[in-house]
């Protein structure tokens, strides 16, 4: 058990958990939309690190990691980039039309932690 504790898999998995927390916080509370988009990327990075921890733990059969979650991360990174590009384009359009880069009268939306 101690060996797993010291391994990079657990360490980066925990780092991923912390990054999820930080990214979520930016996404929920930051007034600027551009920063929220960066927050989404932090959140995504954290999630991918959890996948990475899973992959590293699954080393075997001569591979240093389970290739399936690694491939999922690659797919995920590309999807995350597409999302960033679409969000940035929408934000720039909103700015061109209104001159602001926040969603005015933004109602608070704390995601509730479900059971």
């Amino acid at each position: 058990m101690t060996a797993a504790w010291l391994g990079p898999a657990t360490l980066f998995g925990l780092c991923g958990a912390a990054l999820v927390g930080i990214g979520l916080f930016v996404v929920i509370t930051h007034p600027g939309l551009l920063r929220r988009i960066v927050g989404f990327n932090l959140l995504g990075a954290g999630i991918f690190l959890v996948f990475g921890a899973v992959a590293r733990r699954g080393a075997g059969a001569g591979f240093e990691g389970d290739p399936v979650p690694q491939a999922m991360v690659i797919t995920g990174i590309v999807v995350a980039f597409s999302a960033t590009a679409l969000a940035v384009a929408l934000l720039q359009r909103l700015f061109d039309l209104t001159g602001r880069e926040t969603l005015e009268a933004q109602p608070e939306h704390l995601p509730r932690s479900e059971p």
């Binding site: 999820v20 996404v27 939309l33 929220r36 989404f40 959140l43 995504g44 999630i47 959890v50 996948f51 921890a53 899973v54 733990r57 399936v68 979650p69 999922m72 995920g76 999302a83 679409l86 969000a87 929408l90 934000l91 909103l94 969603l103 933004q106 939306h109 995601p111």
Partner: peptide, 23 residues
């Protein structure tokens, strides 16, 4: 834009869940 923000948050939480399930 607001829809995208909610939807992205939703997908990312979902993705996080799949990571844990796979693990």
């Amino acid at each position: 834009l607001r829809y995208l923000m909610f939807a992205l948050l939703g997908s990312l939480l979902y993705l996080l869940g799949t990571a844990l399930l796979y693990g």
